[in-house]
């Protein structure tokens, strides 16, 4: 960890994201409020226990105060105001955490027993998260088996990875270094070993790493070649052929720029818009003679993958 200055305190770990300052401020604020009330209550108890201790066995209380409207109103209103203030502080911080800036880079995260996989949009995956410093990063997180939870203590952020759902989380790292990524939702035998790291690097280093990693895993191939990969890896080939024979769905061969007849009798030209719509909302434009059974790939295939598929279809003359 090459952090220049440490911001670690007795209570909280080193700060390494834009959230940390806000969260820690709220934490510290309430720590002081807590300390005040704790000392007040325990101090009063100690004072009363000593001052009003029973000196003779038959000694009765020196007074029987049962009510004091002024006192009771005060200690109702003051805590109420404090907690409402805390609610607004917490809510503002939370909303800030929920809305990713539009210039974020997107990375997909998949949790499984017991590892994290980071799928970069450049078409490769990695088992540690590498991100540039001072750059908003948006993660889209899911799980393939049980519920996990994606937690970076130094960034003060966390979200559950739920199978069958995609959850969003974003952050902007503020210092370079290597920080632990932990699973915080109990997931079985190696729950506590489901640890990886987020490596925050300078922008230039990130760009170099990205192109190296992409080329090492074939990620910098031409769009049509990547489209062929998507075709075979993402399950398109289960229903669509590329040799002109009929499958469960229409073949992809020779359809580009041609018109096809739809089940509702209309015709449509096969172009980029049509392909994108057919991927994301397949039952809206069903080709005549085929059942409307294709599931939507909206959110499953990225825009880059859809573009690659489009490029691939263009090559299938």
């Amino acid at each position: 960890m090459n952090s220049m200055e440490t911001t670690k305190t007795f209570w909280l770990p080193d700060q390494a994201s834009t959230f940390a300052g806000r969260v820690d401020w709220a934490f510290d604020l309430f720590l002081w409020i807590s300390t005040f009330f704790f000392v007040l209550v325990v101090g009063l108890i100690a004072l009363f226990v000593i001052k009003h201790r029973r000196r003779r066995p038959d000694q009765m209380a020196s007074g029987q105060m049962a009510h004091n409207t002024m006192l009771e109103t005060t200690w109702t209103v003051v805590p109420l105001l404090i907690v409402m203030g805390l609610f607004f502080i917490g809510m503002r911080g939370w909303w800030h955490m929920r809305i990713a800036p539009s210039n974020s880079i997107a990375i997909d995260v998949v949790g499984m027993k017991w590892k994290w996989t980071f799928n970069y949009m450049q078409g490769f995956s990695n088992d540690t998260l590498v991100v540039p410093v001072h750059q908003p990063v948006r993660l889209r997180i899911t799980s393939t088996d049980v519920i996990h939870s994606f937690y970076i203590p130094n960034f003060r952020t966390k979200v559950d990875a739920v199978p069958g759902r995609y959850q969003a989380l974003w952050f902007e790292a503020t210092k370079t270094g290597v920080f632990p990524v932990l699973c915080t939702q109990y997931c079985g035998t190696s729950h506590s070993y489901m640890i990886t790291a987020v490596k925050v690097v300078e922008r230039a280093e990130y760009d170099t790493w990205l192109s190296d990693a992409a080329s090492a895993s074939g990620g910098d191939v031409a769009p049509d070649a990547f489209g062929a990969t998507v075709y075979s890896k993402r399950g398109c080939n289960a229903c669509h052929t590329v040799d002109g024979s009929a499958g469960i769905g229409p073949t992809w061969k020779g359809i580009w720029d041609h018109h096809v007849k739809l089940a509702d009798g209309s015709t449509v030209e096969v172009n980029a818009a049509y392909i994108k719509q057919s991927v994301q909302d397949p039952t809206s434009q069903v080709v005549e003679g085929f059942p409307p059974i294709m599931p939507s790939y909206k959110g499953i295939l990225s825009d880059r993958e859809i573009e690659a598929v489009t490029a691939y279809i263009q090559t299938l003359k």
Binding site: F19, R22, V23, A26, F27, F30, L31, S34, F37, F38, V41, V42, V83, L86, F87, I89, G90, M91, R92, G93, W94, H96, M97, S149, Y151, P153, R156, T157, K158, T184, Q185
Partner: peptide
């Protein structure tokens, strides 16, 4: 008193994200 005060801090949304689980 400690149990209650730590409960309040867990109710503060932004802080709970860090402290949860």
């Amino acid at each position: 008193t400690i149990g209650g005060l730590t409960g309040i801090i867990l109710g503060i949304l932004s802080v709970d994200i860090h402290l949860h689980d």
